[in-house]
Design a protein around this nucleic acid. Structure first.
Lengths: 191, 191
DNA sequence: GTCTATAATTCGATAGAC
DNA sequence: GTCTATCGAATTATAGAC
């Protein structure tokens, strides 16, 4: 009894090692090419333990790809800075100190994995769209959210998944300035 | 003798059926999830024939994903219409009459297939970058090509692969107008 | 040219000893 | 909790009969 309280025992370390290995491989080569055996090899444990701890490869993926955009409250932001604010937020989320790599994981796997694709749809429909609803603009919120998503996801795709050299080489400042202007126009309909 | 001359014999029809089935499946579910058996089933032939005609799954993929952007000569276009011209061109290429689905094939597979990822890099580095070199602008051509690619590939990703409802729902006119303005600014550095 | 049969792997997942 | 051993299914690719 009192088992689930503290004690970072060996079980917890094993579990954490599995999760870390899974995130590394899912992010690097997507869901289909990542095998339970590979994950176990990197975590330096037996393949059977992966299933024992997470039930199945699918459940492990769901745990590894947990992702919350935690979008800032745009209604409080200076209206003219909505674009840069959003881009700054995403860059920090993707490559800041606390980045967990969940976005590359989802993006790389969403191309051929329905679970990942649905999750990405949920995230952008459930978080980006509501955030833009109160940002105003001449046209519908759905259209604006679609345009914003196409630019932000395209940036992530080229920079983290495809690794197009010119996009990888873009400085954060340049991205915030240039892409920020685009997002500003899409989000507010101004300019 | 004289075998490779004309006569759209049964062999040619079989070959075409295999290629069509492969494009359909590669575009719909990516490289990894598409099996030689599935392709053969749709083409209504024996799985062994797929290998016989194309050598391997990899070679078949390379044939199915042949893609040329055939970019218009931007130096001849009205400078203020470069953005809309480019967006129109890509939309026509992706969903016009002669669209062959190669872009969704590459995009969906590039996430986890190195062959596809390299091909996409080649296409955008080898065709988009040179096209923008002569389009001028204040900053480097590589940076501009990177920004352009991020928006165009993001649009294709959201519309054809992820099928985000708000992006799927965008009219061609709206895309040409809104995304066109973005591409115009990225390509020329103006506005 | 076409298909049957199968080789050779590789996968996720399980059973059970320790 | 951990690992050995293995199952059953699915994969690409090949060999050879017709």
């Amino acid at each position: 009894m009192d088992q689930e309280l503290k004690k970072p025992g060996k079980a917890d370390r094993t579990r954490a090692a599995i999760l870390a290995a899974a995130q590394q491989l899912f992010a690097g080569q997507g869901y289909e090419l990542t095998t339970v055996r590979d994950i176990a090899a990197i975590a330096d444990i037996d393949p059977a333990m992966v299933i024992r701890y997470f039930g199945s490869k699918d459940e492990l993926f769901a745990r590894a790809a947990v992702f919350n955009l935690k979008l800032p409250d745009l209604s409080k932001a200076e209206r003219s800075e909505i674009g840069e604010t959003l881009v700054r937020h995403f860059l920090s989320l993707w490559e800041g100190e606390n980045a967990n790599g969940a976005m590359p994981i989802l993006l790389r796997s969403a191309a051929s994995n329905k679970t990942a694709a649905n999750k990405l749809r949920e995230i952008f429909m459930g978080q980006v769209l509501p955030a833009l609803t109160h940002a105003g603009g001449r046209s519908g919120a759905a259209e604006r959210a679609g345009l914003v998503s196409s630019q932000l996801l395209g940036l992530a795709l080229c920079r983290y998944v495809l690794k197009l050299p010119p996009v990888v080489g873009l400085s954060q400042d340049m991205i915030i300035r240039e892409v920020g202007r685009t997002i500003q126009r899409y989000a507010t309909g101004e300019q």
